[in-house]
Nucleic acid binder design. Structure first.
Lengths: 349, 349
DNA sequence: CTGTTAGCGCTTTCAT
DNA sequence: ATGAAAGCGCTAACAG
């Protein structure tokens, strides 16, 4: 049980005391009221005589009082904080999700507690517990790779979790996600329509639902066009530029006729394009490359990237909104699906 | 935590407040000891008879007890948490800093409380307060743009802050930074040595110290080479691809002879290269482009980016280490300066 | 080595 | 409309 032995160091401070910070009693004393009255004022609860209220507010301002969220949390078992768990802060898509969440959260008086788990399911789980321990009001989880069963197990012990960019799983408050299946279909169709013969899917890491959906969309689009799929056309990769580079490399080794690459995300696509360049393969003439995400880089890289636009900001904002509705007991959809559309640029015109 | 270590116990849900969660008293009762003993066990404090200790640990495990960090924090006025404030989670350099910090923090039993402030000084300040309110053990701040005076003011009201990537300011625990001045000099020198005549600095946003240092290095290198600097060679920009795009555009409008661009960071460089491409300007033949950061993208974009390598991970790790040393009362340097070296790739051979 | 007694700062009953 | 008392779960101080 070493995990819970937490180092609580102390500087030269005396006791666990409050190092001269203003407390609610200080305010109460200075305003000649009880602490409850102060509490009521800062929480806008109950009826308070306007004069009393104003006096308390004045004292608060002049003393520079800031409520102690830990004490509050201990008393109420809740903090005005929303946790966000992202698998990879290096991915601009998640950066957008976070921004969207922050926008709404801030507006509604909540703080964001952001955690990066670097694609590690164990870290994801322990992080989630830690947030729960901190009595966050709710958690947004972007968990593209956690298997359904494990996620369901987590949810069964967790309350108030909104799933970002994955299908609703019972036990969650709800899910806000992109229509990944349609996106995958559209991306594949586009390559088919442009007459590409040997389309390869750089599919991400196997196991997670994102992977499955991409794959399914790919297969469906190919089947609909009557094109048989060789299993070698599906290549696993980590979801970053290196992964894309290696996967594209493998694609060209295995299937030299490859003339289109559908990539798990923009980062993978960038890596794949680099692999093409290093082999003297021209994009888009010899091979077209399609990404997912339409992150800011897509417009900027060369050739610019054809990619499925995925409004991450909307997902984050929608997730927080759903959570807050839930907290307020308001009704809401269990699942919000946001469509993504293809943005055609140079890499796959 | 294991899902099977969850006994169906539920002590009549006291006041519904703690929703049936296990408390230290539950453990104490079940183990026939006082809460104090349990506390000692989980904190590895004081001497405890091994049998007692083991018994407590067993009960903790079987009950699935997890200490309430809020209660702990309230009692000790400290939580085993380190805050990190980054100006822009979309920037891969900061992602690296965060990862480095997480590595060490996790290893030492601390949690990371990450906050994004989107380059907004006000948000930076309020976020910092919120962290302080949460009684974090310390804060790492990456604050490239906050003016010295304002930062100093913040520090005067804050304890235990480590500055990341900026010079030591009195009041801070210390600073861990790159040798930005040398980096800027080296980058400029490289362009000079390769015979570039009209070198333009895309300098970032004015006001912050990062900006100043880049500028100073640029001027010093130019002066050392006896090249006069036209003020139009210094262009402000936001530190993202769009900023780079616009700034490069302006550079070519103003000084058509421009044949080298030194960019505030890799993202700016990517935007600048795109601007070149859109104008039919060849990189590196017509114009060389140099970035800062050597983020993962630098290797992958086309042409690949010559850039100053900045080991973000080291900064984050070093920052946490310095903070922990400080908390333990150990001596440490006030400032750690990490050298960055030029990585030569295609954009400025 | 272990237990007892007080809080930490805030909110929640209940009174008034 | 306001106050008094009683915790929330944990740790600090001082016994023993």
């Amino acid at each position: 049980m070493d995990k819970m032995t937490q180092p609580l160091q102390r500087t030269a401070a005396r006791k666990g005391s409050n190092e001269g910070r203003i407390t609610i009693s200080d305010v109460a004393r200075a305003a000649n009221v009880s602490t409850q009255t102060v509490s009521r004022v800062i929480n806008n609860k109950g009826e308070i005589r306007p004069e009393t209220r104003q006096k308390v507010l004045d004292v608060i301002a002049s003393l520079g009082y800031r409520p102690n969220p830990l004490a509050r949390g201990l008393a109420t078992n809740r903090t005005a904080t929303i946790g966000i768990v992202v698998p990879d802060i290096g991915n601009p898509f998640f950066a957008d999700v976070v921004r969207g969440a922050e926008d709404i959260a801030r507006e509604r008086g909540y703080r964001i507690f952001l955690a990066n788990v670097d694609q590690d399911p164990d870290r994801e789980e322990s992080t989630t517990w830690a947030m729960e321990d901190m009595r966050v009001s709710g958690i947004l989880i972007c968990s593209p790779r956690q298997p359904d069963e494990r996620l369901a197990a987590m949810l069964s012990r967790l309350d108030r979790v909104v799933l970002i960019n994955r299908e609703y799983v019972p036990g969650a408050v709800g899910a806000v996600r992109l229509d990944d299946l349609q996106a995958s279909i559209k991306a594949t169709q586009h390559s088919i329509e442009r007459g590409r013969q040997q389309i390869v899917l750089l599919a991400g890491r196997p196991g997670g639902p994102a992977f499955r959906t991409r794959l399914q969309g790919f297969r469906e689009a190919m089947a609909a066009a009557g094109i048989p799929v060789d299993e070698r056309q599906i290549i696993f990769c980590t979801s970053n530029p290196e992964g894309g580079y290696e996967a594209a490399d493998r694609a060209f080794d295995t299937l030299p006729e490859t003339d289109a690459l559908i990539c798990f995300n923009d980062l993978v696509a960038i890596g794949a394009m680099r692999a093409c360049a290093d082999r003297g393969i021209r994009v888009p003439d010899d091979v077209t490359v399609t990404g997912f995400g339409d992150t800011i880089l897509a417009r900027m890289v060369q050739p610019s990237l054809t990619t499925m636009h995925q409004p991450g900001r909307k997902l984050g904002a929608g997730g927080v909104e759903m959570l807050l509705q839930h907290l307020l007991g308001e009704a809401h959809e269990p699942e919000i699906v946001v469509a993504s559309k293809l943005v055609i640029r140079e890499s796959a015109p």
